[in-house]
Amino acid sequence: MKVGLFIPCYVDQLRPEVGLAVVRLFERLGIAFEIPEAQTCCGQPFATAGEREQADRLGRRFDTIFSGYDVVVTPSGSCAAHVRRHGGDRSSDRIGGRGKGGTGQRTRELCEFLVETDALRGLAGRLPRRVGLHASCHALRDLRQGNPSESREPPRVEPVRALLGALEGIELVELARRDECCGFGGLFSIEQEAVSCRMGLDRIADHERAGAEIVTSSDVSCLLQLEGLARRRGSALVFRHVAELLADALAPDATAAEAADGSR
C-alpha cells in the first residue's frame, strides 16, 4: 500500500509540528509514506468561499499530485471531507475524483486511516491527562466519523475517541455540547468575526467547565481558532492536534506527560 501524506497548506505554514507529529507517528507505527513536495492546498477554502473555478484548479492539482498513491492521508477532517464529499465542482467527478478509484475515494482523515488499518494494535500509549475532544464538524457530519448529536442513526465508530480512549491514564471529559461548531468556518472567521468569536468562546467555556487540561481535535483550523481566543484571555488550556497527542503518547523515549506539556 502506497501512502501519500497530505499536510495542508496552513498546517505547513502555521503548525508544522502537527505534520512532524504525523511523521513521528507513522515512523513509530512502521507505516511507509511519501510526502509529495508539490502539494499545497486541496482547494477547500475556495470551495467554501464559493469560488469554484479556483477550487477546481487546486483540486485538479491535488488529484494529479496524489494520483499515484493507494491512500492519501491527511491530519485534517475538513480537507479530507472536501476532497471526499464536495469536490470543487459539484457537476462532475473530476475534482478529487469522487468516482470509483478516484483520489476522493482514496483520501482518509488520519484517525480514520489509523482505525481502518488497525495501526495501533498492540501498542500501549500513555497520556495521564484530562482531555477535551473538540469534534471537527466536517469529520463528524461530512465524513460520518461517529454519530452527530442530532442524529439517531445506528452507532458508528468515532475514530478520534477510539484512538485516544485506548491510551492509558487519559480522561476524556464530558462536554455539555459535545459537537457544536467552534465558529471557524474559513472566511466566516474573518467576515463574521464577532459571531465567530462568540462561538469559539462558548466552546472554550464548555471545555473549561468540563475540567479539560488539553483540547484536541482532528482539525488544526478549529484549534487555531480556539487557541487564539483562549490565549488572548490567558486561559490555561493547551491545544494539541490528535496526531501530536498520539505521537507523544506512543513515543518510546519520552513520558507522555512531559511531551504533552512541552512548550512549542
Binding site: 499536510i7 498546517v11 505547513d12 505554514q13 502555521l14 503548525r15 508544522p16 509540528e17 502537527v18 505534520g19 512532524l20 510526502i35 513536495e37 468575526e193 468569536c197 469559539g200 468562546l201 487555531l224 481558532q225 487557541e227 487564539g228 481566543l229 490565549r231 488572548r232 512549542r264
Partner: peptide, 14 residues
C-alpha cells in the same frame, strides 16, 4: 480583535 496570533514558526513543515 479577540484572538491572539498563533506563535509563528521559523520554518515550514516542508
Amino acid at each position: 480583535r479577540e484572538r491572539a496570533l498563533p506563535p509563528l514558526p521559523a520554518a515550514s513543515f516542508q
